[in-house]
Amino acid sequence: MAEINEAEVMDALHECYDPEIPVNIVDLGLVYGIDINNDEGKVHVTMTLTAMGCPVAGDVMAEVEMRVREVENVKDCKVELTFDPPWSPERMTEDAKWELGMV
């Protein structure tokens, strides 16, 4: 079976944006982990949101699933939402901080 390229999965996640902040979820530090099961063609993404009770949580998760499923050899994607550890601005990349005028 052909393998799923982790770099392509990360590229797909870089195309997912928080609807309220004009920065992708990777640079915001919302992605906590990616597990790839090449035997089954599945990707499991563990992520968080900037705030509990985010009204667009379902939209963000659906976009992550959709974009990852578009990656070659991916048959399915599951997104797990966690708030442990809680997100904080320290998780953002320098690029995100620059984009938001925080540096």
Rank of each mutant, 00 (worst) to 15 (best):
M1H: 15
M1N: 15
A2G: 13
E3R: 15
I4V: 07
I4S: 04
I4K: 02
I4Q: 03
N5Y: 14
E6T: 10
A7H: 14
A7M: 11
A7D: 14
A7L: 11
E8F: 11
V9C: 03
V9T: 03
M10F: 10
M10D: 05
D11M: 08
D11A: 08
A12C: 03
A12F: 01
A12E: 00
A12H: 03
L13T: 01
L13V: 02
L13W: 05
H14M: 09
H14R: 13
C16D: 08
Y17D: 01
D18L: 01
P19L: 00
E20G: 04
I21D: 05
V23T: 08
V23A: 04
V23E: 08
N24L: 01
N24I: 01
I25A: 01
V26F: 05
V26P: 01
D27T: 00
L28Q: 02
G29R: 06
G29W: 05
G29Q: 02
L30S: 00
L30C: 01
V31T: 00
Y32T: 00
Y32C: 00
G33V: 06
G33S: 05
D35Q: 14
D35A: 11
D35F: 13
N37F: 12
N38K: 05
E40S: 15
G41T: 06
G41Y: 10
V43W: 06
V43D: 00
V43K: 03
V45K: 03
M47P: 01
M47A: 01
M47D: 04
T48Y: 08
T48I: 06
L49F: 08
L49H: 07
A51K: 15
A51F: 13
A51S: 15
A51I: 11
A51Y: 14
M52R: 15
M52L: 12
G53A: 03
G53T: 04
C54P: 00
P55R: 06
V56A: 14
A57E: 05
A57H: 10
D59M: 14
D59H: 15
V60M: 12
E63V: 05
V64S: 06
E65R: 13
M66P: 12
R67E: 03
R69F: 07
R69N: 09
R69D: 02
R69S: 03
R69C: 05
E70K: 15
E72C: 05
E72R: 12
N73V: 05
N73G: 08
V74M: 00
V74G: 01
V74D: 02
V74Y: 04
K75D: 11
K75W: 13
K75P: 12
D76C: 04
D76K: 12
C77Q: 03
K78T: 09
V79G: 04
E80T: 13
E80D: 12
E80L: 07
L81Q: 07
L81A: 04
L81K: 10
T82F: 10
F83R: 09
P85N: 04
P86F: 14
W87Y: 08
S88Q: 10
S88W: 12
P89Y: 05
M92Q: 02
T93D: 02
E94L: 07
E94N: 08
E94W: 12
D95R: 14
A96D: 02
K97R: 09
W98V: 13
W98F: 15
E99V: 06
E99G: 06
L100C: 05
L100P: 04
G101W: 10
G101Y: 10
M102K: 12
V103K: 15
V103E: 10
